[in-house]
Design a protein around this nucleic acid. Structure first.
Length: 452
RNA sequence: GCGGACGUAGCUCAACCUGGUGGAGCGCUUCCCUGUCACGGAAGAGGUUGCGGGUUCAAAUCCCGUCGUCCGCGCCA
């Protein structure tokens, strides 16, 4: 008779019964006449023991770490003196009767749980992603995405799929990757879903997407990659950028609530604090932040068009002390620093109805109100030195009537990294792409001899 | 692209300053072990010190170049 597979986490419900489990070998502890294994599956781990007279004894001697096995045995309660209080299922044990090796593991570069350098980690992702720490990071990240979606759906947003192959570069500044598009035509990888989510405001009023953006800027930092995941939404019929900020804040609040509910252990594992989110996130204009930096923190900042990374770190530390908040909104960046579609503030000429959301020293979101008037938009395109004809597809939306609207884009990897207090966003990206790496170092594929 | 640090065993590192043909821990291989859970014990394999050049009687060590990594900056999510 065919035996159903039992998940390891369910084993305590099968004491004194025969079960079949399947998974990977964490470790083997060979005592000579008896062999112990730690076996893991997606649900947990358990110790198995192979006794001398077991039919599985020969197989037990062959098995090594990371072998994939199917095991039949009896679940036993452990005698009092053998209970291990430090591990999952430490009070039970599987007495192994049969082992089927489903797959062997060969030439493992290091132990699965070994702490390795980032470079080594990235070189071996198919293996290193199996680390407990990596698994926890990406499970938490899945919750962030899920909560982002859930919150926006609750706020009447509809999800849509944005294209990755585009005809023009949305931001005008960000370096776009050019792709050969059949014969002699050119296309680009999207640097942002910006135009499409604005177009979708004309369709759904409120639209969001979780998609990829590609930027070919040749920098090497702990917060940039060639390809990143962006959580984007755009909403119609707003008064100004503050409506967007309120929607985002609701979203962030839900994300933190969900992550707190489901992943407190992950925070402990990584030594990270749960994010501090007060009744409302403090909001400052750029100029106000610069004044605080100058007068209270003794830094030079006034007159600059933007905040430097060090400024962002400092203002966040200050806000944490003063407002008990890990988040800070900064609004009213100058027109010169923002893309053409950003709405200029009638009350503060030269400054925009835009915002950044800083989280623990790093900007994780940029957003604001958009221009919805066709003529104004065309005028801004021209003033930025761009050619309106190149944006004709996008501009159709505005010819067809667009409500006042706005939106924002949150970097998934950035929010994850700051949440878990991990210094480099590559640690929270499954398969990071950067200047020199797509899965493996590009220099290795370009030219085998180059670095030998 | 610029600036700083680094590159030594499969992994993580020591030896570099003060030149004298390289070590540790973990992992791996073989053997021993009936209560381990970081198992323990014995033995063993594994390195042109990223690459190239220079100084020197002698270079992992000092100098130059090159390739690569990490960190910071411009830019940005």
């Amino acid at each position: 008779m065919r035996m159903e597979r039992t998940l390891i986490t369910d084993l305590p419900n099968h004491i004194e019964h025969s079960v079949k489990i399947a998974g990977w070998i964490n470790t083997r502890r060979d005592q000579g006449k008896m062999v112990f294994f730690d076996i893991r599956d997606a649900s947990g781990t358990v110790q198995g023991v192979v006794l001398p007279k077991s039919a599985a004894f020969e197989a037990a001697k062959e098995i090594r770490s990371e072998f994939v096995v199917s095991i039949e045995g009896v679940v036993n309660k452990r005698p009092e003196n053998n209970i291990n209080h430090n591990v999952q299922n430490g009070d039970i044990e599987l007495e192994i009767q049969a082992i089927q090796i489903l797959s062997i593991a060969i030439d493992l570069p290091f132990e699965r749980e070994a702490e390795v350098n980032l470079d080594t980690y990235l070189d071996h992702l198919p293996y290193t992603l199996r680390k407990g720490k990596a698994q926890e990071i990406f499970k938490l990240q899945a919750t962030i995405i899920e909560a982002f979606r859930g919150s926006l759906r609750n706020q009447r947003f509809i999800e849509f799929q944005a294209p990755e192959l585009v005809g023009t570069d949305a931001e005008g500044g960000a370096a776009a990757f050019e792709v050969k598009y059949y014969y002699d035509k050119k296309a680009y990888l999207a640097t942002s879903p910006q135009f499409y989510k604005q177009i979708m405001v004309g369709v759904f009023e409120r639209a969001f997407t979780t998609t990829k953006a590609f930027r070919g800027e040749k920098h090497s930092t702990t917060r940039h990659m060639s390809e990143y995941a962006t959580l984007d939404f755009e909403m119609g019929f707003i008064e100004d950028h503050r409506d967007v900020m309120a929607t985002l804040e609701t979203c962030i609040r839900h994300v933190i609530a969900e992550v707190t509910k489901k992943h407190t252990d992950t925070f402990k594992l990584l030594g990270a604090e749960l994010p501090l989110l007060p009744e409302s996130i403090p909001i400052f204009k750029l100029q106000e932040v610069q004044e605080i930096l100058e007068t209270k923190l003794g830094m030079k900042a006034l007159g600059e068009p933007d905040l430097e990374p060090e400024h962002e770190r400092q203002i966040c530390q200050w806000a944490k002390k003063e407002y008990n908040s890990d988040f800070v909104f900064v609004t009213h960046y100058p027109v010169s620093k923002r893309p053409f579609y950003v709405f200029e503030d009638e009350q503060n000429p030269g400054f925009t109805k835009s915002f950044d959301l800083l989280f623990r020293g790093l900007e994780i979101t940029t957003g604001g109100q958009r221009i919805h008037d066709y003529d104004v938009l065309v005028d801004k395109i021209v003033k930025k030195g761009l050619v309106p004809e190149n944006f004709s597809f996008y501009l159709q939306a505005f010819k067809a009537g667009m409500p006042p609207h706005g939106g924002c884009a949150t970097g998934l990897e950035r929010i994850t990294a700051r949440m878990l207090n991990l210094p480099n966003i590559k640690e929270v990206t499954l398969f990071p792409r950067d200047l020199n790496r797509i899965d493996i170092l590009l220099s290795d594929t370009d030219d085998e001899d180059k670095n030998n």
